[in-house]
Design a protein around this nucleic acid. Sequence first.
DNA 1: TCTTGACCTAAAGTTAGCTTTAGGTGTTAT
DNA 2: ATAACACCTAAAGCTAACTTTAGGTCAAGA
Lengths: 142, 142
Amino acid sequence: MYTIGQVSELFGVPISTLRYYDREGLFPGLERTSGIRRFGERELEALRVIECLKRSGMEIKDIKQFMLWCAQGKETYPERLELFRRQKAAVEAELHQLERTLDMLRFKCWYYEQALAQGGEEGIIDLLPEEIKGAYDRAHRD
Amino acid sequence: MYTIGQVSELFGVPISTLRYYDREGLFPGLERTSGIRRFGERELEALRVIECLKRSGMEIKDIKQFMLWCAQGKETYPERLELFRRQKAAVEAELHQLERTLDMLRFKCWYYEQALAQGGEEGIIDLLPEEIKGAYDRAHRD
DNA sequence: TCTTGACCTAAAGTTAGCTTTAGGTGTTAT
DNA sequence: ATAACACCTAAAGCTAACTTTAGGTCAAGA
């Protein structure tokens, strides 16, 4: 069992944030001894999942829903699976989007390298190499 | 030349947002005829870049800085290149992070498919297939 | 004893990125 | 002439995810 300070150290998450998560219902069934929070293995795993789901762009209130489902037992397996499937699809879409953003950034880097080298922006587009051209085109269509 | 309403239609960005961007200095040198904003090719390209940089996670105030550099001419090529290089690195890091998040989500999907199939969570970890195991391990280390 | 340190709460404050509101101008269709 | 539009501004409001503040409890060490 860990105190809030220890968990904060372990995960590098501010104490105020842990308390906030608790307030928001992200640790349903968190134990207390005379008012003091006691974090067990269950809460540590919860925190790992919270960090993952947050990185995936999920909102706190939806993470709370998941934690409630976990506390409810086997009957909620389908809901939990559905949630992870949806989130997986969302992250895949986001990854794809980011790849195209990266294409645009690659193009812009190349562009300013050229501008810097030739001391101006005149006619840069004409000497677009094939590989950068691909990036440029991908970045400009939806 | 386009009015704010036309640009809003073209890009699918709310008029209020375009005015907000203008207020924040994202269109330095935007023309006006008797108070009314006139968007030209320069502003459309700016908007394309804004959308890209926003997707890359850049804040409005940093995008503003870039637009100011553009308005300043050739002397700021180095700054602009630096900005795009930094942002490219940031997006590459974010992509890597998201891949690991996806690994965790893949693992969770597999996990709940198993739990659902066998009606419980007992001993699931023991039958982790190699491919999922990799995902699980990657997702749990920093 | 007293003070230091780790915990607690409720409530107010913060930040980014918008959106909404309230009120006003100028042109065009009825 | 009057109403409908598309534009304008300043300022207030909103949401998410925290953080800060102000005040309080309790146990251990000097």
